[in-house]
Structures are given as structure tokens and as C-alpha cells.
Design a protein around this nucleic acid. Sequence first.
DNA 1: CCGCCTCGAGTTCT
DNA 2: CTCGAGGCGG
Length: 663
Amino acid sequence: MSANPAEEIAKLRKEIEYHNHLYYDLDDPVLSDTQYDELYQKLKALEAQYPQFATADSPTQKIGGRASPSFAPVVHRTPMMSLDNSYNAEDVRAWHERCAKILSSSSFDMVLEAKIDGVSCSLTYIDGVLTTAASRGDGKTGEDITANVWTIQDIPHRLAHAPAGVLEIRGEIYLNKADLTALNEKQASQNQIIFANTRNAAAGSLRQKDPSITAQRPLHFFAHSFGFGAISADSFSAFVADCRQWGFAVSPVRLQTSSIDEIIRFYKDFDDKRHQLPFDTDGLVIKVNNFTQQRILGVTAKSPRWAIAFKYPAEQATTTVNNVLFSVGRSGVITPVAQVEPVSCAGVVISNATLHNFDEIKRLGLRVGDKIILERAGEVIPKIIKVVEHLGTQDIVPPAVCPSCGRPVYQAEGEVGYYCVNPSCPAQIKGRILHYASRGAMDIEGMGEAVVEELVERGFVTHFSDLYNLNFFHLLSLENFKEKKSQNLLDGLEESKKRPLSRLLFALGIAFVGAKTAEVLADRFHTLDNLMQASLQDLQAVPDVGVVVSQSVYDFFHDPAARQQIELLRQAGLNFTQPEKQISSRVLEGKTVVFTGEMKGMTRTEAELLARQHGAKTSGSVSAKTSLVVAAKAAGSKLKKAQELGIKILTPEEFLALIGQNK
DNA sequence: CCGCCTCGAGTTCT
DNA sequence: CTCGAGGCGG
């Protein structure tokens, strides 16, 4: 090694730059790939050893050795067409029939591939050397992004066994989901923009002026179409085999069949599986396999007739924020909710989206009138991901007074949330009553949001105990209520009196006492009177009850208004005791079970109760302490985590068999 | 004191 | 389902 590392580094850089020039610009390398790599690794090692000499313009930082992408217009040899979209079996069958009619045969091979959500790209190789990479643009003319595409590991610079002359391959450049998460964390830490999805991140990475930035993004590529050139393949499947030979990745999802029924089955089945793939897919692509048949089918002005995209409903949608309202929860917390221009997303029409709190609004920089992207991915709750275009002028500020009762709003010291502190605020009363009647609590049949709204509005109900003073005549005066409905609600109220103490405790809405804590307390103290007489020390002796929870429970039961309510509920004839836990077996003794996905014929709560009756503990989230996960078909993140942790996974059927229940 | 595990609370639409 | 925070073990 040279005595002077700075000199050695400079020499290596010059040398590598020269070979880059031969390789990329003149297509005439003199070094083998191995020899070149040796030089490259040597420089990299030296730069690592002497970081003081590392520079941004070193070939190790500027993969490809070229200055920058020109973004100059590139005219495609054949237009890069988009695909016709279909979203259901009906449309796909119609497409298949149309093909059959033109081909005068209903039996022709089709190939199914994943439609990965990325950026399409055209790669031109001359005598096997990558010379131009272009974006799709408007389909006729794209932009030259060669320097950036050079940095993508998946894309070979030189093809193995390539045909002579021009060969144009088309495919998709994309980013894996996990890499987007990591990238966004990095972006956030450097105060850079956050990408809303993998497609935007891939597109943004390709639009970089400095290829060294693109090089840091773990972009991937898979080949999916033939653009131009003299190839021997006479079918798409043969072309795919060629692509593999040349060194390209291809769609990992693949099906070749002549049965449209099989394709539709695959589509339905794949909807569950695709979320567990490392990349985002928005559907499948169906192609007629035989190239001669493709030629017969031809193209329309917009798209080829021999292919169709079989898409799943979009999980993201773009829309406009029309207004922001403030909802008041049962605890008085004020939550901003965006009213958006109704838009279809993941199969439903979204018109509201929570904004969580005012920090969130600040983070998004949201104003009324802005164009936004919202998402309903995997989950159910719509969430605003980012503002696409700032069209609004009206800032969103916390309300000075409660939108429900008009009293001043308070912000707790050092907290994010704003509160309405008026206990007789109608919105809070409605929230409390609705919670009391809800399924996990007293489960009063026939008492939904609209009924509660009217009961409170009309002044029939202010406190829990008022519910049990409702009579036939009150109910008959409600909207849409006749004898039948009124009687049903009265029956529902009567039923609710028998609920176990745990349900009642949860229903009372004591701060920090949810369903789980309520059950623990009820099991420990057996009766409401025992619990009311408990000291702070008694309460803290209960597992999972600490300073905060015990104080909250203690305060609640020493509040005169609450005590009066409890007396009125006692007079109404409510059950204040907790039945002894019935144990069916001890099969699951010492095990912690988590349920995920939709059980058939059983709610998750029922399944959990069943597990507990057999000695198990149940939990809502998977962790190292979980011993068993029962996963139904459409399971998502929990199943994934269980697999990562190597936790035993059972189907609902296997679970029922384990505890000795048939069906 | 820190980090893990869990629970509580709020939220949408059919 | 996700976020924030309480409980508790190390």
C-alpha cells in the first residue's frame, strides 16, 4: 500500500472514474466485473479507514460515475400504454368474453401477475448494455432518468446472453413497505418531507437531481413487459423466462391458466395474502399469453385489449377538507373531526376523518379547503396522511367555547387535549349514556345513538338511573317508536339489570377503569358495597391497580353525586354482585391467549370468555409473553408478529378442538 | 430510571 | 386499530 492514504484514495478515484466512463459512456470496458469490483472495494475500505478523506463526489458515493440525470425527453419506440381497470369478477368475465369472441375460441392461456404499486420504467439495452432508462411520462414521451436508474441494484447494467441490437424491457420500480417506514423515520429526523406511500417514495427517489441520494434508497425493480427488440419468445411466459435468464427479477406472484374461474378464485384468495407481502400491491394483471393472439386482439387508443388490471379498491384517496367540527366525548375531551368531500376508499364512502388533536393539525399544516390524501389501510378508521395542495386560507384553531354547551373550554396544564369541564354538558351526557348502554357495558338492546340523542334532548334522561324510570308513554313519544319498539326497549332495560358487577363498573365510566380493570375489581371485591368501602390500600393491593387507578376509583365512590346514583340504581333493582367464575377445565391453565381475525359464529369477546373458562389469560396484543394465538382467516399484523416471535398459531377449529368443543 | 406489556379511550361505516 | 399512558419488573 502507498505510504500516503490521501494519494492512494485520489489515484483509485481517478482510475474508477475512467473505468466508469468506459463502461457507461462508451460501452467498452477493459476490466472484468471482478477486476472492477476489486478496485471499488479497495477504495471503499480506504475511505472507511480514513473518513477524513471521504468526499461527496467520490465514485463510491455517486454510483454510476455520471453527473446527474438529464430528465431530457425520451420518445418511446412503442407507446407505454396504461391498462384497463376492473374491480370485480363481472368486469373480468366481460373482458374474457370479448377476447374469446375476437379469438373465436374460449380456451386460451392467460398469465396472472402481481400489480406492484410503483413507477413504471422503460430500459433500453444496446448489445446487452443499459444505455437509457426512461419514465413513462404521457406514454409517448418520458424523461431520461438513466443516471438514477443506474443506482438500482436489481437492474443489471449488462445482460447475460442478451440478443444483439436494441432490446427494450419495461417494468416497475418500487420500494418495499418496511423500507418506506425506515426511510420516513430518517426523513423525519432530518426534517425532510414524509412520503405518503411507497409509490410516492419511489417516484420521489427517481426525481432526485443527485443520483447519490437515489442510491441510498433501496429501490427494487421487476420486469413485466416487452417493449421492443428482436426476441425469440412467442409467448409472455417464454418472455418471462428470458427475462430471468438476462438477470431480471419478475413478479413473484404468478399463475398460468385458461380458466377465468380460477383467476377469480385466485383474486379473492390473494386479497388476504397480499398484505403480508413485503411490497404494496393494488391488484393483479391478467395477460393473454400467446403473442400471436395478443397481436390479433390489438390495442385501443388507450390500452391493449389483451391485458387488463384486476384491482382491489384503493386504500388511499384524494379529497378536500370542507370543514372541521369539534366533537365532545363522554369525558369532555374535545376532538377535531374533518368533514371531507365524500370519497370512495377501500370499498366505503368516507365523509369524516378524525384529526385526533390539535398537534396533529399543526403537524399536517392543515387548513379548511386543503386537498388531502386519506387512508384506510388495513385498519378501519380513516386517517389524513398528508396535505397534497394548500388551497385553504382558514386556519383551524381550538374552539373557545364547547360546541355543545357553550361553556369555556380549558386546556390542561402541559397536555395536548382541550376539555369541556361542565358535567351537565349535553354532549357529555349523551356520551356517558351511550357508553353505559353499549355492548361491552350494560348491553341495552334497542338503545343506539339516535335513541340516546332524543332521550337526552327531550330531557327524559340525564343520569344513568333515569333510564330505569322510562315508561311506555315516554318511549311512544319518540320518533319512529310504536308499541313493538317501545316494549323491546323496556325489555332491554329490564334485562340489563341482571348484568354482572363487572359490566356495571365498566358502564359507570370511572376514569382509567375499562372492561379489564372492571373485571379484576369485580372478581376481587364480589359486591359493589365491598368495593365502595375499600380503602386506597385495599385497592392498590389488586394486581394492575396502582396509584392513579386506585385514586380514581376511590374518588369516584366518595363523590356524593355518584353515591346518590348508586342508591337509585339499587332501588331500581340492579344486580350489584359478581358471580363466581365458572371453570370448565384447566386445559389452558397458565397460558396467555390472543385472538385475531374474525371468528365464525362467535365474537372475539365470546371466544375470550371461553378461553378464560378453560383457565387461560387473554390479551389484546401479541408479545413475548403470549403462549398461543388463535388466528382466523383475515388476520393481519398480529398474526405477522406471532410468526416473527415463533408463537404457536391455531385456527379457530383447532382451538375449539383443544378445549374439547365440537364445532 | 427505563423499557416492556397492557389497558383505556376515541373513532368510521355498514 | 392506534396512540398515549399506567403498572411493574429489571
